[in-house]
Design a protein around this nucleic acid. Structure first.
Lengths: 192, 192
DNA sequence: GACTCCCTTCTACACCTGTAGAAGCTACTC
DNA sequence: GAGTAGCTTCTACAGGTGTAGAAGGGAGTC
């Protein structure tokens, strides 16, 4: 992806995160990217193309973020590591996460955006692998359940009621809080 | 709420669910409600007022849906009951659920919509009560975690990857699938 | 230098949206 | 029947938005 294109896609992510899908207009992206009016429109003639670029950008950044928390023997460490990742998605990665949720919702009525549904495929694969190694039966399904649980935590903290109740993301308290919650989820699946 | 107002609010819910927040325009709601152009605009002069009405309507219908699944002694039954509720939110209540997600996301950058964050307050209260009765320590927080997990399942199935993988909502398979997943969550919290 | 190609910027325009106010209608009061 | 209050429908309009195409500019080739 050329520089300009990435620049525009990133600006689009920012716009969607801060103003919602409704705020995503060619001119808003121009302004956000600090480019002259018409630039976004020139690169992505249609709005659909712009959204697709944005979705691709999100997916791209996702896969770039490869984590390796695969030590099944120490579930406490695993919980802590996951909590840190989750917390980063609520702080430095906040906009990306919000934009992703917006796109996921959009994909509900725009099937061509379904690529974004591969989001978390990595996490799911990792979960499955771990569970298999640990000899948990029905690892595939259990892995998906685990990821759904943990995603539920993220959604709650970021856009749900947890945004009011839970500790401020980025703080040690937040990490601790997330760690215990994730540890609970792991206990559910692994049984200990 | 008068008839017309409810009619408009309901149409607005449908529009948001099917076309997203971006599709929510006065005229679209008119069309959806089968009312002459200008009606929605007359009742809700500003778009903000319309959204607020829509959020209120969602909250209203939520509280109308009082469930009583409070038999802590039988976690299997509890799981099954919850699964049925969850499944109904993905079938008959699908649009409402989607509209709620859209509004939650909107509330992220529009604090005045935060009322919607009280969504699930009932579920959380119920969870807390149950956990207290069962003698689980830190019932408040654990309850919130439990609800976040279960909401995660819902989100996954409805707008996440589960929309592709999980069994078709409304089928017995879906209920079974949800039941085991919820049972897992309960096991995590209750320890058995 | 003239030409060409490609990237970038500008301009145009039909259509959509939010919002306001005027006009019309209905039912009820005197 | 005249009047009136309140709901409902229509119309207007300023601005925003999606999209297309024209204009500009700068590097590379002959």
């Amino acid at each position: 992806m050329s520089d300009r294109l990435t620049q525009i896609a990133d600006a689009a992510v920012h716009v969607v995160a801060t103003r919602g899908m409704r705020g995503l207009t060619h001119r808003a992206v121009d302004a956000q990217a600090g480019l002259p009016q018409g630039s976004t429109s020139a690169y992505f003639r249609t709005r659909k193309a712009l959204i697709e670029a944005l979705v691709r950008r999100l997916a791209e950044q996702d896969t770039a973020e490869v984590t390796d928390l695969v030590d099944v023997t120490d579930l406490d460490a695993l919980a802590k590591g996951s909590a840190q990742v989750l917390d980063s998605w609520m702080t430095t990665g906040r906009e990306r996460t919000l934009a992703r949720y917006a796109c996921l919702l959009e994909a509900t009525h725009h099937p061509e955006l379904r690529t974004i549904l591969t989001h978390g495929a990595q996490s799911r694969d990792m979960a499955r692998t771990m569970l298999e190694r640990a000899g948990v039966p029905d690892a595939e399904r259990q892995g998906r359940t685990l990821v759904a649980f943990i995603d539920g935590l993220l959604f709650d903290r970021l856009v749900g009621a947890g945004a009011l109740n839970a500790p401020q993301p980025g703080t040690p308290e937040s990490i601790t809080d997330l760690t215990t919650a994730i540890r609970t989820a792991l206990r559910a699946i692994f049984g200990h």
